[in-house]
Amino acid sequence: MHEDDQVSRMERGEAGTSCSSASTMTPEKIPSSVSPSKRLSLHSSDTRHEKLRTPRWIRTARTRLRTSWVGTGRQAPDPRQIIPKPIVRALYASPQGYPRLAAFLDSDESFMIYRRFGFIQSRLLLDKQDQLRELERKLEKMDRVEAKIDERWPRTRDLPDEQFEPRSQLLSQIEEKFCSYANLLEAAQKMVAMHHPSKVDYNSVRSWMHFRKPLMEREASWINHEEDMVTLRAGREHAWLDSSIERLLRWFHCPLIERLFGDERSRTKSFGIKASGTESSGNEVYYSRQHITRLANCIITMMILILLIIPIYTLYHLINDIHTGKSYAICMGILVVATLAFSAVLSLFTKAKRHEILAAAAA
């Protein structure tokens, strides 16, 4: 069609006829000369009918599924967002000597055992105490001498420099000695408040040092001072039960137990990368502290449930014979035995104090 004919048709108002006829064309028959805006208008009616037929929640779910599929399956991970694995020090990756001993003591909180040096603390405290005693005697003597010369001297600090200087020097010396004594006394108090290591933990460290011999004999003799040992481990709630579980796991050690109660960190400590010139015996076995704690919690929960359910179940079946003297005696005996067993569980498996055990048993 020529341009003159198109213009004449537009002047006569027949342009709408061409648009309506073009709208009836199928997508395959749309000429390429049609502009993109006209192509969009051609498909708008079909798209509108499709939206009316498809519910909105289905379209929303379809969009989300398509977005998640593209985001998780087809998008490559950003190298900057990859979190590196935690660094775990292997026991036999350190050279023989103090490095390996330090790695062993740091491998588990139960092995953090060191000397308290109680004898040296007492000697230092006694020495500082005697020094302060001498300075105290000098201060008292100076006060008496100054009081005899002039009664105003011990009562004021507003004195000439030649008279106040000896007292000022003596007080400064006393302050220095007293601060040193107080710091030492506070450190000794913190040492005394620390827990002594359990027999199992102490024997483990001592046996390892005896068989592995990381130090010279004279330098390794510190482990023999059993009464002078302290542990940096905080008192756990189920220390006895946890140590018993660890002992049983070591006795019945097998690949299955190691798989159930171990993790990647524990296996790295035992069989990690070895340093050159070192040999791993494989006798050091580490278990996950979290798995042992879960097992201990399960055992305590089961025992508490048993101690609560069995007495109630037994007393329930004794209701029929409650009017006889024998049934009363049996009920009292069941209550006493259950209370004693509950108190024994609290005292053995937990670090509950005496008043806490009494309150729990009375409740």
Rank of each mutant, 00 (worst) to 15 (best):
E258S: 12
D130Q: 15
Q189M: 09
L184Q: 04
I30S: 04
A360L: 00
R259S: 04
E50H: 13
F104P: 00
V230Q: 05
E226I: 14
L249M: 08
M194F: 02
F119Y: 13
T26E: 10
C331V: 12
S37E: 14
R233V: 01
H196T: 05
I113T: 06
V336I: 14
P84Y: 01
S107A: 06
L249S: 12
I299M: 15
K274F: 04
P95N: 04
S107V: 00
E11I: 12
D158L: 10
S244W: 05
E165C: 05
H238M: 09
E134F: 07
M194T: 02
K190I: 12
R115S: 15
R59E: 13
R133H: 03
L358N: 05
T60V: 12
E134D: 05
V336H: 05
T72E: 13
S180A: 11
E246W: 08
A22G: 15
R206L: 06
F178N: 09
F104W: 00
V192S: 03
W222E: 03
C179D: 11
E237D: 09
S110F: 00
W222Y: 14
S23W: 03
L185R: 06
I87C: 02
P27D: 10
Q173T: 11
E237H: 05
P31C: 00
P84G: 06
P79S: 07
K353P: 02
H225T: 09
R12T: 05
A61G: 09
N183T: 09
L124I: 08
F342Y: 12
D4R: 11
R48L: 06
A220D: 14
F211K: 13
S343Y: 00
I149K: 09
D158N: 15
H210G: 06
L346F: 00
Q121W: 01
P197R: 01
V337L: 06
E165L: 07
Y313P: 03
R74P: 03
K274M: 12
D106G: 06
V230W: 01
H291L: 15
S94K: 07
L308A: 15
N297H: 10
P55W: 01
T63P: 02
L132Q: 07
V337P: 00
M112R: 13
L91C: 10
H291M: 14
D263M: 09
S168L: 12
R80D: 12
L91D: 10
S207K: 08
I245H: 07
